[in-house]
């Protein structure tokens, strides 16, 4: 059996390079792979494109990546939250580019990439600024915008449990973008709380099968995101 376990954070992140497109799971503070992101910060990479729902909150995680000058572009649905003050400052200083994508379109562009499709037609954003310049198709009398797949070089995923094959479970609404991003990257890296033996996970409860996972790092007892804490 292929060994997907990385004993150290450094080993889990060693393939990352400058200018990579990195998909980062999470919504608000739930399901954010904070430990992996901190590890990426320590790599001191440059020119990264970060794809996530938010543009970083408070001063850790994606916000720290921004503050340290690692990020050239953010692709997200909700950049202007009050907690995203680091992003606001960087954007206004012209130090980072922004692409705003409707949240459902963001999820589906990722899923589409993971599913090997060339794009999809969505009613979302027809006639709006965010649909501008995109081909519009009429299907059965209704207008749809053509959206392209969004693939990452890497995905950073937060899971609750992992087994040796990389099968994953999640916790509550910390699932959010994680399963979709796990399938949409060339190389998917998981931060899991608990490692269990192969065969210990009920196959009916596995949300992300290990086929979408390239390596995992066991980060220790599960800590949900906590405002102001190390996971915020």
């Amino acid at each position: 059996m292929q060994n997907k376990k990385c004993d150290t954070l450094e080993a889990a992140l060693e393939r990352l390079t400058d200018d990579a497109i990195i998909l980062v799971g999470g919504f608000g503070i739930a399901g954010v792979p904070e430990i992996l992101i901190e590890g990426v910060c320590d790599r001191g990479l440059r020119g990264l494109t970060i794809v996530a729902n938010n543009s970083g909150t408070h001063e850790t995680g994606i916000a720290r990546l921004l503050a340290e000058g690692c990020v050239g572009k953010i692709i997200c649905s909700f950049p202007w939250a009050v907690e995203s003050f680091v992003f606001k400052e960087m954007y206004e200083a012209g130090k980072v580019d922004l692409e705003v994508v409707p949240q459902g379109t963001l999820a589906e562009r990722l899923r589409t990439a993971g599913a090997g499709l060339g794009g999809f037609l969505t009613p979302t954003a027809v006639g709006t600024e965010l649909g501008a310049g995109k081909p519009v198709h009429e299907i059965d009398g209704k207008e749809y915008v053509l959206e392209r797949p969004l693939r990452g070089d890497f995905a950073l995923i937060k899971a609750r449990e992992v087994d040796g094959r990389g099968n994953l479970t999640y916790r509550m609404a910390a699932r959010n973008f994680n399963p979709v991003m796990a399938m949409a990257a060339d190389y998917t890296i998981v931060e899991a709380a608990t490692e269990v033996p192969v065969g210990a996970l009920d196959p009916e409860t596995i949300v992300t099968p290990g086929v979408f996972v390239d390596c995992y790092y066991v980060a220790g007892p599960y800590t949900p995101g906590k405002e102001g804490g190390p996971y915020s």
Partner: peptide, 19 residues
């Protein structure tokens, strides 16, 4: 989005309103 703003936080508004 406000008319004067360079950008906005769309979140899920466009998808939900359209669907």
């Amino acid at each position: 989005k406000l008319p004067t703003a360079k950008s906005g936080s769309v979140g899920g508004a466009m998808d939900i309103a359209a669907g």
